[in-house]
Simulated assay, not measured.
Amino acid sequence: MRDLTLPRVPPNEDLRLALVQTTLAWHDPQTNREHFDELLADIQNVDLVVLPEMFTTGFSMASLSLAEPEVGITAEWMLAHAARLGAVLTGSVIVRAEDGSHRNRLLWAQPDGELGHYDKRHLFRMGNEHEHYTPGDRQVTFALKGWQVRPLICYDLRFPVWSRDPHNTDLLIYTASWPAPRRQHWNRLLPARAIENLCYVAAVNRIGADGNDVLYSGDSQLLDFQGDSLLCTGSADAVFQLTLGAKELAAYRTRFPAYRDADDFQLG
């Protein structure tokens, strides 16, 4: 069991983010990659770039026809951009795993050529996602400039146990295709995740309509460890660059170390 009385080791460098909120072409990976080529062209001096969920296709159940290999054309495209930017590039795509299953997989493309991933745990049954994809079975944390960064995908946001912090998370990322009719849920749950984990939260949603006429309102945002808004994008089609303060995070955890009284648990 973890010793919850021990202080967390905070990062000592600020972290520079770019959040990319935009429309997506339905079932057209090449068009979407070219669109993101344009959006990424002017990004400079960042450590991490976050793209929406299923950013090459839109939120689709056509896994059989759209799935790419684990290291397919989009993974190679992401690694090339990561190397050019000198930053991690992340977002989810439809992947066919080695075991033949289809995954809604967040790829974590590093500038050094390493490729990590997180498979979406909670599949959106109201959209039949659970009938077309296999859920992930583990949380994943990536180290970046001394920050512990934990990615989650869309529907994961609704499940506080999975979103809870057994890994000393400094930044939670949610990449999403969250529909406009439930934007109130999105806007209320994100601050809760920041508050309960004593960490920053960066959430990137798409805008526009998909091929099923589902509307997306955007509302991508960045929240601090008290759930206060540092950015809310509304429905803008743009790239937003911000910096997360390491000293501010460490100071707050020192003043208010609620993590020391947290319940220890293991996920089954």
Rank of each mutant, 00 (worst) to 15 (best):
125 R>L: 15
261 D>H: 10
213 D>E: 12
194 A>M: 06
47 D>Y: 01
262 A>L: 11
150 R>P: 03
93 V>Y: 00
194 A>R: 01
243 T>F: 00
107 L>Y: 14
49 V>S: 01
36 F>C: 04
263 D>I: 15
106 L>C: 11
161 V>I: 15
113 G>E: 10
137 D>R: 13
121 R>V: 15
164 R>C: 11
139 Q>Y: 03
158 R>D: 07
19 L>P: 11
21 Q>C: 06
71 V>W: 01
167 H>I: 04
264 D>C: 12
2 R>Y: 07
112 D>H: 10
16 R>K: 13
50 V>I: 15
37 D>G: 08
70 E>G: 02
153 I>P: 10
56 T>F: 03
43 I>K: 05
123 L>G: 05
215 L>F: 11
200 Y>F: 12
40 L>V: 11
228 D>V: 01
150 R>Q: 15
179 P>C: 05
162 W>K: 04
231 L>K: 03
91 G>K: 00
4 L>G: 13
129 E>P: 01
233 T>I: 12
231 L>H: 06
197 N>W: 09
55 F>Y: 05
100 G>F: 06
143 A>K: 15
23 T>H: 06
4 L>P: 12
109 A>R: 05
178 W>C: 03
82 A>F: 04
213 D>M: 09
4 L>W: 08
228 D>P: 06
113 G>Y: 07
187 N>K: 09
